[in-house]
C-alpha cells in the first residue's frame, strides 16, 4: 500500500508485531542452541527453562558426542550418504524428464505431464505398505537403495525443471544440431549448464527433504548402524532420558550445517521450498 500517508501508530504496530513473530520463530531454535550447553541430566529433569543458572553452561555434551558417541556419527554418515545419493540421482533423472517435456514436441508429452501432476497429488503415505512389501520382495530392506530408490524421479522436481526449461533458448539447440552435436550432447553440454539455478533450487529441496525424511526410512531401515539422523535421534526420545546429551547436542549439529547453507544460498532455498510446499 502507499507510503504517503502512513499513520505512525500503524507503522509501530506493524513493526512491533514482526519483532514478536520473529521472536516466536527463532525462540525454539535459540533455546535448542542454548540448552545444548546445559548438563543433560538437569535438562532432562527441568525441560527447557526460562530460568537457569548460567554458571552451569559447559561443553560436556559436545565433548561427549565427539569422543564417545560412535552411533551418532554412524547415523550422520548414513544421512550424508543417503542425501547425497538422492540429490545426485533425482537431479539427474528429474532434469532429464522435465527438460524433455519442455523442449520436445512428441506424442504423449501432454499425457506424461498430466501424469506428473497427478502423482504430485498422490501422497506417499497411502502407498507405503505395498512399497514396503515390494522392498521386502526385492530384498532391499535395511539398505540405502530402499530409502533412495522410490525418490529418484521426483515429480515435484520434474515439474519445476519443466517450467524452467520452457524458458530456455531453443535456437541454441538448432545451432548445435548444425554443428553436428547429438541430442544428448545438446542436453548435457549446452542446456543443462543453463539450468543451473533450477538445479541448485532442487538440490536444496531434495537434499533437505532427504536429510529430514522420517517415515519411509523408519519403515525400511532396521538396524542401528543403518539409521539416519532423524530415526537415530528419535530412538533417544525415551522417557528415561539417559541419552539427552547426544540428543540435544546432536540435534544442534543436524541443523547448524543447514542454517549455514541457508545463509549463503537463501535465494535457492526460497525458490526450492516454495515450489511445492510438499513435505518430504
Amino acid at each position: 500500500m502507499d507510503t504517503n500517508k502512513n499513520n505512525p501508530a500503524l507503522v509501530w504496530i506493524a513493526n512491533l508485531s514482526f519483532v514478536i513473530i520473529c521472536f516466536i520463530a527463532l525462540f525454539p531454535i535459540l533455546n535448542l542452541l542454548l540448552s545444548s550447553f546445559r548438563p543433560s541430566s538437569e535438562l532432562m529433569r527441568n525441560g527447557i527453562s526460562l530460568t537457569f543458572d548460567p554458571s552451569m553452561l559447559n561443553l560436556d555434551n559436545y565433548t561427549y558426542i565427539f569422543t564417545q558417541a560412535g552411533d551418532y556419527w554412524t547415523w550422520y554418515g548414513n544421512s550424508l550418504a543417503i542425501s547425497a545419493l538422492t540429490i545426485v540421482l533425482s537431479l539427474f533423472f528429474s532434469s532429464m524428464v522435465g527438460y524433455a517435456l519442455a523442449v520436445y514436441d512428441f506424442k504423449g508429452s501432454n499425457f506424461f505431464f498430466v501424469l506428473v501432476l497427478f502423482i504430485l497429488m498422490v501422497p506417499f503415505e497411502i502407498l507405503m505398505l505395498p512399497l514396503y512389501q515390494l522392498m521386502i520382495s526385492m530384498q532391499l530392506i535395511n539398505t540405502y537403495t530402499a530409502v533412495v530408490l522410490p525418490a529418484i524421479v521426483a515429480p515435484i522436481a520434474v515439474f519445476f525443471f519443466r517450467q524452467f526449461a520452457l524458458g530456455l533458448p531453443k535456437e541454441l539447440m538448432d545451432a548445435a544440431r548444425i554443428d553436428g552435436s547429438t541430442e544428448y550432447g545438446i542436453f548435457f553440454k549446452i542446456m543443462l549448464p543453463l539450468m543451473t539455478p533450477s538445479l541448485a533450487a532442487m538440490a536444496i529441496l531434495q537434499g533437505l527433504n532427504s536429510w529430514n525424511n522420517f517415515l519411509w526410512p523408519l519403515i525400511v531401515l532396521r538396524s542401528n548402524d543403518m539409521f539416519t539422523l532423524p530415526i537415530g535421534l528419535a530412538t533417544l526420545l525415551t522417557p528415561y532420558g539417559n541419552n539427552y546429551d547426544v540428543l540435544i547436542a546432536g540435534s544442534v549439529m543436524t541443523i547448524v550445517p543447514i542454517i549455514i547453507l541457508f545463509i549463503f544460498f537463501q535465494r535457492y532455498f526460497i525458490s526450492g521450498l516454495t515450489v511445492g510446499g510438499v513435505k518430504g
Binding site: 531454535i29 529430514n212 539422523l229 535421534l233 541443523i255
Partner: peptide, 15 residues
C-alpha cells in the same frame, strides 16, 4: 520466518 522450515519435525518436536 523461514528458519523453522529448515529444522526436521523430529528436532523441532524434541525442542
Amino acid at each position: 520466518l523461514f528458519m523453522p522450515a529448515l529444522a526436521s519435525t523430529i528436532v523441532a518436536g524434541m525442542v
